[in-house]
């Protein structure tokens, strides 16, 4: 049971940061930015390159996150602001196109091979019968701190208030003297940082390749949509739900029911389970679990 919870948490942490980035940016500029998963890859690749250049991992990670944040702001100004004028669907397709361009750049610069950080290998720790490693604990802790910090910014600071005001009604927010452009810029920057941190977190625990981001696309979207796009902390809950669905499918033994010792749903259906969950939730609650607004298109 503890092992089950640990597995769910490990997977949820992988998804949560990127999903939060996706969701928070959606609250201000109303389109799901597909390129965000590529920001995660960029963050991991940059951190890797910086570490190889001699920086300690911590410094490499921080620099990479800041660089990706800046990149996110730059792309938002140069590409997405322009695309958004033509509508949110166009902006979404544009972000998809942008992530293909990212893929091409990764392919030429980093090559298709699997890579990993140079880290010491520690034997697994036993924790109430569950098996975890130091790297997994550290990655989980960093993610938890990042999520908590994000929540603090959102609910305890002036900036957070401005963000929420802009998200709820940007016209009114502007009328009350909030610099909505600056607020949007800050959120875009934070979303880039979160995504990069998520990417680095995945890479630190093991191996990464240039496909990291695109492989995460659907699970991350499923998590963000389940939580309700625009609801940043809902995305974290969404990630937990997705992780739990996948883990249940792979680890529940149906054997005893059918008089066999072992009978599992084929592991290949684990990913299908999370997508199906997404579809079912959307049928019942068209805007996710934690968003109450109802509009029909």
């Amino acid at each position: 049971m503890v092992q089950f919870l640990v597995d769910v948490l490990i997977r949820a942490v992988d998804l949560a940061l990127i999903a939060i980035g996706l969701s928070s940016v959606y609250s201000l500029i109303r389109f799901p930015n597909v390129a965000l998963v590529q920001y995660a890859t960029t963050g991991a690749l940059l951190a890797l390159a910086l570490q190889m250049a001699g920086l300690p991992l911590l410094a490499a990670g921080i620099v990479a996150c800041l660089m990706v944040g800046a990149l996110a702001v730059l792309l938002n100004l140069m590409v997405f602001e322009r695309l958004l004028r033509a509508g949110s669907a166009i902006a979404m397709i544009g972000s998809l196109a942008l992530s293909m361009v990212f893929s091409a750049i990764f392919l030429v610069t980093a090559g298709p091979r699997a890579q990993r950080f140079e880290l010491d290998i520690a034997p697994p720790l036993r924790f109430l019968g569950a098996r975890v490693t130091e790297h997994q604990l550290i990655a989980a802790a960093i993610s938890a701190v990042a999520i908590a910090g994000f929540a603090l910014i959102l609910f305890r600071t002036d900036l957070g208030r401005c963000m929420r005001a802009t998200a709820t009604n940007s016209v009114l927010a502007r009328a009350t003297g909030i610099d909505t452009r600056k607020v949007t810029g800050t959120v875009v920057f934070l979303s880039g940082v979160m995504a990069a941190l998520g990417g680095i977190g995945i890479a630190v625990k093991g191996e990464m390749s240039v496909h990291l981001g695109l492989d995460m696309l659907l699970p991350v979207f499923a998590a963000a949509i389940l939580g309700g796009l625009g609801n940043a902390l809902g995305a974290a809950v969404g990630a937990l739900v997705i992780a739990m669905a996948e883990t249940l499918v792979t680890n529940v033994n149906f054997g005893p029911i059918f008089g066999q010792s072992l009978l599992f749903i084929p592991a290949a259906y684990a990913t299908a389970a999370s997508f199906l969950l997404l579809v079912i939730v959307l049928l019942a609650r068209p805007y996710g679990l934690f968003v109450s607004e109802v509009k029909r298109v």
Binding site: D7, K205, L212, D215, A267
Partner: peptide, 8 residues
Amino acid sequence: GQTTYRRE
């Protein structure tokens, strides 16, 4: 393309 195969 998954990040973990622990469950498998």
